[in-house]
Design a protein around this nucleic acid. Sequence first.
DNA 1: CGGTATCCGAATTGATACTG
DNA 2: CAGTATCAATTCGGATACCG
Lengths: 125, 125
Amino acid sequence: MIYTKNGKTYHCPVEAALDVIGGKWKPLILWALGDDVMRFSELQKMIPGVNTKMLTKQLRELEADGVLTRTVYPEVPPRVEYAITDFGKTLLPIMEALCAWGAQYLGIDDAAVSRCPTKAGKGKA
Amino acid sequence: MIYTKNGKTYHCPVEAALDVIGGKWKPLILWALGDDVMRFSELQKMIPGVNTKMLTKQLRELEADGVLTRTVYPEVPPRVEYAITDFGKTLLPIMEALCAWGAQYLGIDDAAVSRCPTKAGKGKA
DNA sequence: CGGTATCCGAATTGATACTG
DNA sequence: CAGTATCAATTCGGATACCG
């Protein structure tokens, strides 16, 4: 069986799921938006090392996949807010599982894991 | 927090997990080896479109990550068998979750999903 | 503030041919 | 049978500069 969406072809739904969350900065974006609505500049601060082009690209892809929403407020200076959708929230338990597995793989104590680098200390799970 | 393994750097354990299962053919390989031990040529038959170079590369990476084992039998003609490890088996429930989410994303009935293309009809889950 | 546009190097994937 | 080697094509990721 072959699956298709948005002109892309998958041999297995797992591939499709990985295509949605597999971008370089997407896990970090999803962790960040899991709790809060955030502005572009806030995301950029929470994700060290990302540049505007890549952050924009990954946000637009997640938006196109129905995982998050982008709301533009017609003000000066402009304000744009990103929020996770209900559908996007269904990814969070899977991310938790991936996080736990990844911690095992890395040989670290899962309880010591701060999922999002800039959210350490906010408490886990 | 920054995590390191094999010279690679991750900002989050999720990235590490995705690095392990995120290769283009890896989900298919893992489904295939989830049930059975298989030879190289069997895998190649089960995964349409892959060429020997890519299949070799992805298998070696999964082996290096401790997800599967590679056993060479010193016979003529040569025989090489690949099998999932106990650690690799811990990925399978996560793959199931990714598969279910991917089916939702693709807008198809999860019950209709055959996880591995060439294993359709063997029964699901 | 929240982006685009351009250019570029690095990494990934693939087709094809050959080998112990 | 189970790969390697080589080369080509594509995609991805990033630095920098500019714009409404």
